[in-house]
């Protein structure tokens, strides 16, 4: 497994895009800190970017890496290596290197700005944790789609559609339902619908940490009640973890039956 990881890293370290991604976060962090001149505000702006962008990048890198390394995969399959090791190794290679870009790219400017002396450190930390979860989730989803579709264009298109659905369309439908059924008590529905979508869930976890739940409107109180309890937090992280574990499990299942 470590060897596969090593070669995935090696492979990605030769790709220009890994550096672009890292530099993007580095610049974003620096610019936001200069513009806002305040750690807490920068964290809020960052959240809005990260919650949408991290899933998109995870999706694109996941699909691209899977298709680009098909030759390497075929070579590995004839070697005395477990299939599971090959695919999980590649998945972890992509996900870990993306997560590192995120952590280092944002971490460096924030630490340089004096994050460790600031009260915003936990907000920033929760933002990074959400970002890392989203990276692992969407890379795994992308691998799933690519594994099931030989056709690159189709796989790519479907992966982008999935991202679009979870990042944009889901919220749209959610809002429509809230507006349409506003005469009914929808607190429970709103809560469940947000917990099920990893992007919404991450957003709420960060927002609540920032203590601006009032922004969430009338459902805010319910959310605060739920997420404020340790049970709510455990459930939330459990759901995020499930969003990683289930797709990874499917990677193992599908790759075991696939012909190369």
């Amino acid at each position: 497994m470590l060897k596969i990881l090593k070669y995935s890293f090696f492979d990605l370290s030769r790709s220009l895009w890994s550096y672009v991604y890292f530099l993007f976060y580095l610049l974003l962090g620096i610019i936001l800190l200069f513009l806002n001149n305040d750690l807490s505000n920068a964290v809020i702006t960052l959240m809005n970017v990260i919650i949408i962008l991290v899933p998109l990048i995870g999706t694109i890198f996941g699909v691209m890496y899977y298709y680009d390394s098909r030759e390497f995969t075929e070579l590995l399959l004839a070697q005395p290596i477990k299939r599971r090791t090959i695919f999980i190794g590649q998945y972890l290679g992509v996900a870990i290197s993306l997560a590192l870009s995120l952590i280092l790219g944002l971490g460096i400017p924030f630490v340089a700005y004096g994050l460790f002396e600031s009260a915003a450190i936990w907000n920033f930390f929760s933002l990074l944790v959400s970002g890392v979860f989203l990276t692992f989730i969407f890379t795994a989803l992308a691998f799933n789609i690519a594994l099931s579709h030989e056709n690159k264009i189709k796989g790519f298109g479907l992966a982008i559609l999935l991202w679009l659905f979870l990042a944009v369309v889901y919220d749209g439908i959610f809002l429509l339902i809230l507006v349409y059924f506003q005469d009914y008590p929808l607190d429970k529905f709103a809560l469940i619908a947000s917990v099920l979508n990893p992007i919404d869930l991450s957003r709420i976890l960060v927002l609540l940490k920032l203590d601006i739940s009032a922004l969430l409107g009338y459902t805010g109180a319910v959310f605060k009640l739920f997420f404020g309890t340790s049970q709510g937090v455990i459930i939330s992280f459990g759901v995020l973890a499930l969003w990683v574990v289930l797709p990874v499990y499917r990677i193992i299942r599908v790759s075991a039956k696939k012909d190369f």
Binding site: L77, A256, D259, F260
Partner: peptide, 9 residues
């Protein structure tokens, strides 16, 4: 041949 190598299932 690929079945022998476990590449085809």
């Amino acid at each position: 041949i690929k079945s022998l190598l476990g590449m085809v299932v």
